[in-house]
């Protein structure tokens, strides 16, 4: 049983996949706790298993062994539908490739998770969130017409609009130039400081690593 002050707890978690050459271990015997309001940065080389670890912590994937607790709920024995219920309205995501809905404007993209969670005043909350990321003048702009940095701002606004208890960010600056990446990182940490949201961030950039409360290094599926 996870402790009450733990947002995420992983207990001897393993993840493997079957390949034609036999079982391939991606994560091995991972145990890890993340407290509420903590900012944890996970760093590792390509193929080290950091994205898989993020997916397991967020309940996007199921562990092959061990227990994963999110908000005190054990995700190990829950199907995707039940895991979605645990995430609903409490988890935000920021992806490397933004993953915005093409053909929709900035406002609509931010409204999407609010409406999916059945929140009534979605437009107001979305506008407020866009204002926080400095895009109040571009609410009606189609996202494909925005720059890379602006698209990532919309993604951040979308993530913070639902006022999540935990934000998972996967290489949020990976697709941006250094200057824009720095601005995005500043924005994300600023919003996180304001809202007290727990942050789990996967990156391979040293600059971001230093901004977390705690750094976790992963190599060949094991925590160092």
């Amino acid at each position: 049983m996870a402790e009450d002050n733990l947002c995420i707890a992983l207990n001897q978690v393993g993840k493997f996949v079957d390949t034609p050459d036999g079982k391939l271990d991606i994560l091995n015997n991972i145990s890890l706790d993340v407290k509420y309001q903590e900012a944890v940065v996970i760093k590792g080389a390509s193929g080290s298993g950091k994205t898989t670890l993020l997916g397991l912590m967020a309940g996007l994937d199921q562990a092959s062994s061990g227990d994963v607790f999110l908000f005190g709920e054990n995700l190990a024995r829950r199907n995707e539908e039940q895991r979605a219920s645990v995430r609903a309205g409490r988890v935000g995501f920021v992806f490397q490739s933004f993953h915005l809905v093409q053909g929709a404007n900035a406002l609509q993209n931010v409204m999407l998770p609010l409406e999916l969670s059945g929140i009534d005043n979605a437009p107001q909350l979305a506008i407020e969130s866009l204002r926080q990321v400095g895009l109040e003048k571009k609410v009606n702009t189609l996202v494909e017409h925005l720059s890379g940095g602006e698209q990532q701002r919309v993604a951040i606004a979308r993530a913070f609009a639902i006022k999540p208890q935990v934000l998972f960010a996967d290489e949020p600056t990976g697709n941006l130039d250094a200057g824009t990446g720095r601005q995005i990182a500043d924005l994300m940490f600023h919003l996180r400081d304001q809202s007290g949201t727990t942050l789990v961030l996967v990156t391979h950039e040293s600059e971001l690593l230093e901004r977390g409360d705690r750094q976790i290094l992963i190599e060949s599926g094991r925590l160092l």
């Binding site: 809905v101 093409q102 053909g103 929709a104 609509q108 409204m111 999407l112 409406e115 999916l116 437009p123």
Partner: peptide
């Protein structure tokens, strides 16, 4: 007024 579901579909 709302994005989900009609406008989301049309944007797609």
């Amino acid at each position: 007024r709302r994005f989900w579901l009609r406008q989301y579909l049309l944007s797609r």
